[in-house]
Each structure stands twice: as C-alpha cells, then as structure tokens.
Amino acid sequence: MPSPIKTLFLVMDMMNDLVAEDGFSAQTYAVQVKERGVLEKTRAAIAAARAAGALVGYVRVGFSADYREAPANSPIFSGARKNGIFQLGTRGTEIHPALAPQPGDFDIVKHRVSPFYATSLEAILRAHRIERIVMSGVSTNGVVHSGAREAHDRDYDAVILEDCCAGVSADEHMHALACLGRYARIVSSTEFDWAA
C-alpha cells in the first residue's frame, strides 16, 4: 500500500444533470464531456490518484426539494429551480456511474459555485493536513475556476487536470484556462505525477 500523500483530488460537479448523455445538460456540457473524453480521462485519473494514496472527494451542487438554499436572484441557480434540476436525492445529483465513488471518498455538497463556500471542504482539508488540491470537473469557468482561485488564496498547491474539465463550449473552456494559469498549475492528467 502506498504511503499517504497530502493530496486531495476533487472531482467536481460530474453529476448526471450536467454530464450524462440523457441528463438535463445533454445538449451542452454532456456534448463537450463526450467530445473531450472527460469521463474516461477522469476515471483513469481517479485510479492513478488512489494508487498513489491520494484522497478523493466528489463535489456536487444540490438543493432541497423546495430549493430553500438556492438564491432567488442568482442567474445560475434560479434556473435550477425553474427547470427542476439539482435536487438532492434524485438521479440528477448522483455522480455519473462511470466515476462512482468508493467507500471512504468524501461527498461534498455545495449550494453555490465555489466548492469551499459553506461546505465541509475546509474541515476535510485541515483534518487530513492536505497541502495539494488537484481539481477536475464541469464547468471549467465555474466550479474549477472558483475552486482554483480559492485554493490559491488559502495557500494550497492548486493543480487543474485540463483534460478532465469541460465547459459549455470549447471556447468557454479555453478562455477559462487562459485565466487560471495565474492561480494553478494546468497539466494533462496523463503527465501529472501523483506521487511527487
């Protein structure tokens, strides 16, 4: 068994509502996820992380059935209420089956874009003395962008697995990455050394 390293791999918002081919976002995010091979690459990255002894956490956006946590004035989350998506306890907020969590993985539920805001993430990071946060997910300009900036400002070594991320479009993804290089290392999942 490899010795534990102080790394947490965050697989973010890879939920059926966003990335499943039959999910709510089948014509947007799911298209990019399929074209870029994000599910397959993320599955391989999760396996590599586990083999190196890194911890794995799944970040999911979700709300109660009455959307009590959703801000009415949010351009993003008012749409969730209107379209009946991101309801906790439904298939839509489950992690895509290709990336199924294992016992011992962290389930981090958020009610905003950021994986840090009002979630269990900070407590997990402190309890396990994490030094490096590796990130992937959908969308690149949403949760990944927000997570990288906040990880940077909390003095973590932030890493983004570029080929394990997607936006609504290829342009959106690339524009987000153009900004993120200031806050995180951007690498390919096949080139990243989990044990380093």
Rank of each mutant, 00 (worst) to 15 (best):
L55H: 13
L55E: 09
V56F: 00
G57M: 01
G57I: 00
V59Q: 06
V59E: 03
R60M: 13
R60D: 01
F63N: 09
F63D: 04
A65D: 13
A65Y: 02
A65W: 02
D66Y: 04
D66M: 04
D66T: 05
Y67S: 13
R68C: 11
E69G: 05
P71R: 13
P71W: 11
P71K: 14
A72T: 13
N73S: 13
F77R: 07
F77L: 03
F77N: 08
S78V: 03
S78Q: 10
G79A: 08
G79K: 14
A80H: 13
A80F: 14
A80D: 11
R81S: 08
K82Q: 12
K82L: 07
L88P: 04
L88V: 10
G89W: 06
G89L: 03
T90F: 04
T90L: 06
T90P: 04
R91Y: 12
R91D: 11
G92F: 07
T93N: 01
T93S: 04
E94K: 07
I95T: 12
P97K: 09
P97E: 12
L99S: 04
P101R: 06
P101A: 02
Q102H: 11
G104W: 00
D105K: 00
I108H: 00
R112Y: 11
R112S: 12
V113G: 09
S114K: 11
S114W: 08
P115W: 01
P115M: 01
F116R: 10
Y117W: 15
Y117Q: 14
T119M: 09
E122P: 10
E122C: 11
A123N: 13
A123G: 12
I124D: 00
I124T: 00
I124E: 00
L125A: 04
R126N: 11
R126Q: 13
A127M: 09
A127L: 08
A127I: 00
E131N: 05
E131V: 00
I133K: 07
I133T: 07
S136A: 14
S139V: 14
S139Q: 06
T140R: 01
N141L: 08
G142S: 10
V143Q: 08
V144P: 15
H145V: 06
H145S: 15
H145I: 06
S146H: 15
G147A: 11
G147V: 06
A151W: 05
R154F: 03
R154S: 03
R154Y: 04
D155C: 07
D157A: 08
V159S: 06
I160F: 09
L161Y: 08
L161G: 07
E162R: 15
E162D: 15
